[in-house]
């Protein structure tokens, strides 16, 4: 009897699971697909100069970026971006922890930090060009100068607001300074630090593009501007798409890392919600 029912039920469940999977895939790609179709139809029906059809852009994407341009323009840009992001995070967390832990230092620097983070980062490009010339260093410095703030300020705030009972626990068990940093202060601040890192990533990408639009003869930002000035519309669009892909990739990598680092944090949130 049981055998009978189970043989009946099994395929049904499977088809149900498949149906669900199919449904979520449909939801995931349905709307973007619809948009693309509308765009394609529109650009064929009423050809507009500045909105070539997605097919043409895809063709231009392959022609433009797959080949030598990848080595001469894309890779150097990505290298500077990566270096800028890593430096921002390292500097931001190190300085932020120090400032967050030492009260007089925090009170000394607070007004200055408030001011510096309020400066729109791209205006630093002329200054950096003057001091460092049009070099790779200059571009990385611009990226760091703009992207360090979210991590820095979030780290300060996170370190500062370590829970009082947790701190007292550490003190009562005579936990050493280094251990306190490693097992209490940094983990406690990690949700805020990660929130800062997320912003840092997008600011860094913006500054990478801007610094190349301004002062460069290679790189992604330079290429896109070049295409625009020469009315290579499809190529320009392919550059926009590439930047979009880089942004999406960064966001995806971030969310994977964030899920790992903050597993405990998301766990708590889930428990609280249940």
């Amino acid at each position: 009897m049981t055998l009978y029912t189970s043989t009946i039920r099994l395929p049904r469940q499977r088809s149900h699971a498949w149906k669900r999977l199919g449904e979520s895939t449909l939801f995931a790609i349905g709307f973007p697909f619809l948009l693309l179709v509308i765009w394609a139809a529109w650009s064929t029906a009423a050809p507009a100069t500045f909105f070539p059809s997605p097919v043409i852009i895809a063709q231009a994407f392959v022609d433009t970026w797959i080949g030598p341009a990848f080595v001469t323009d894309v890779l150097p840009s990505l290298g500077r971006l990566a270096l800028g992001i890593i430096l921002s995070i390292v500097i931001g967390i190190t300085a932020g922890t120090l400032i967050g832990l030492v009260r007089w230092l925090r009170e000394l620097l607070e007004p200055l930090l408030e001011f510096f983070r309020a400066i729109p980062p791209p205006v630093l490009i002329p200054v950096a060009m003057l001091l460092l010339g049009i070099t790779d260093t200059m571009k990385v410095v611009v990226i760091v100068a703009g992207a360090v703030w979210p991590v820095l300020l979030n780290t300060i705030e996170g370190v500062r607001s370590t829970d009082s009972v947790m701190t007292e626990t550490a003190r009562s068990f005579a936990i050493t300074r280094a251990e306190r940093l490693r097992y209490l202060v940094l983990p406690a601040a990690s949700p805020r630090i990660m929130a800062g890192v997320r912003q840092t990533l997008s600011v860094a990408l913006i500054l990478m593009v801007i610094s190349e639009m301004f002062a460069s003869s290679s790189g992604l930002g330079y290429r896109i501007t070049y295409f625009q000035r020469n009315y290579l519309i499809a190529e320009m669009w392919s550059g926009i798409v590439l930047l979009g892909l880089i942004g999406v990739l960064l966001a995806a990598v971030f969310s994977i890392v964030e899920k790992r680092v903050l597993r405990w944090y998301h766990g708590i949130k889930e428990v609280e919600r249940a």
């Binding site: 913006i206 926009i240 930047l243």
Partner: peptide, 11 residues
């Protein structure tokens, strides 16, 4: 969302 807004400047 992650598309850097400045990428749209040329357009």
């Amino acid at each position: 969302r992650p598309i850097p807004s400045v990428a749209l400047i040329p357009l």
